[in-house]
Simulated scan of single mutants.
Amino acid sequence: MTRTARTRTKAAVIGSGNIGTDLMVKTLRLSAHLEVAAMAGIDPRSDGLARAARLGVPTTADGVAGLIGMPGFDEIQIVFDATSARAHQVNADALAPHAKRLIDLTPAALGPFVVPAVNLDSHLDAPGVNMVTCGGQATIPVVAAIAQVAPVPYAEIVASIASRSAGPGTRANIDEFTETTAAAIESVGGARRGKAIIVLNPAEPPLIMRDTVLCLVDAPDPAVRDRITASVEHMVAQVAAYVPGYRLKQPVQITPLTDHPHTLIGASPATHQVSVLLEVEGAGHYLPPYAGNLDIMTSAALRVGERIAAHLLEAKV
């Protein structure tokens, strides 16, 4: 079946800030299955709403209520929420009676966590999914790759982002970031215990996003350690397929533990520490390249929207 505008699934973006605007631009430029049918914000002077209007996308500055009242709202099937954790709860409640598929880019954690390279196909029929956090999207695939090979009693991630790329929404959700990411490290990544740390780097000029993944593993067999390295490298390639600026900063390091870290893992066995250093450079569609933390969120959300739209189309054929 030839893909035309008529076969595209209509989608709306709530949030006219940096993340919502970058997602809109990415969808317009790259999407094979989605049509941006609306952008909703709350600031009529925002660059996002102005840019949407210039690109021919219908807009409203009345938030979710304005979106629901727009002509053609009934035809919209997918709604991306790029606001804040608190605002998403309000938006989800308002949209609940309308049976839209929600893709949440905030750390509200109302729906199942989705990391495209790890568990997307398991949640294609969910009414709403949560994209975890930028740090989660960057690091959870690596934790999952390690956990596929050997038990991971403890995983810790440190996400370092340019301070200039952390807008009001990010700064208002620091606690939600750490809590949501840690929970997803366990439930999606497969670690028995997870911890997340975010660092706002004030360096000028701004540095691109860097992530450190530290996992304690039970892998006494050298062959298993080789498989861990191969699994991580394969997973990085899978993520890079939808986030081109995602890459290993240096080869995977696996070192033996000299002391048993009881305070972190209790009685669980652990023989080695796996250290993985990553960096994420943005594609520059709307955001500057140093804002890889925002780019990985919009790239992952677009991948989820594309897959859900294709799934909806397949169900109609």
Score class of each variant (00 low, 15 high):
Ile296Asp: 00
Val217Cys: 01
Val199Pro: 03
Leu313Asp: 15
Arg8Ser: 11
Gln148Asp: 15
Ser31Ala: 05
Pro107Ala: 12
Gly128Ile: 00
Gly136His: 11
Asp211Pro: 01
Ala37Gly: 04
Val280Phe: 01
Val243Met: 06
Ala138Asp: 04
Val152Pro: 05
Met297Glu: 05
Asn119Ala: 07
Gly169Lys: 02
Ser163Glu: 15
Ala82Cys: 14
Thr21Asn: 04
Glu281Thr: 12
Ser165Leu: 04
Val274Gln: 05
Asp211Phe: 04
Tyr246Asp: 09
Asp175Tyr: 04
Asp211Thr: 09
Ile174Lys: 03
Val243Glu: 08
Glu179Met: 15
Arg193Lys: 10
Glu279Leu: 08
Ala65Ser: 02
Ile68Asn: 06
Lys26Ser: 03
Thr7Phe: 14
Gln77Phe: 04
Val239His: 00
Leu287Thr: 12
Pro112Asp: 07
Glu156Gln: 14
Asp74Gln: 13
Thr255Arg: 03
Asp259Cys: 05
Leu34Pro: 09
Ile103Gln: 04
Pro116Cys: 10
Asp221Ile: 08
Leu200Ser: 01
Arg164Gln: 14
Arg54Cys: 12
Ala117Leu: 02
Ala40Gln: 11
Ala162Tyr: 03
Thr21Val: 00
Leu105Asp: 10
Ala283Asp: 12
Glu314Trp: 05
Ala237Cys: 02
Val224Phe: 06
Asn201Cys: 08
Tyr246Ser: 02
Ile14Val: 15
Gly266Ser: 09
Thr60Asn: 06
Pro153Glu: 08
Ala241Tyr: 04
Leu34Ser: 10
Ala184Lys: 08
Ile265Asp: 10
Gly292Leu: 00
Gly66Gln: 06
Pro269Met: 11
Ile146Leu: 08
Thr9Glu: 11
Thr59Phe: 00
Met1Gly: 13
Phe113Asn: 07
Ile76Ala: 00
Val36Pro: 00
Leu257Arg: 01
Val114Leu: 14
Thr21Lys: 01
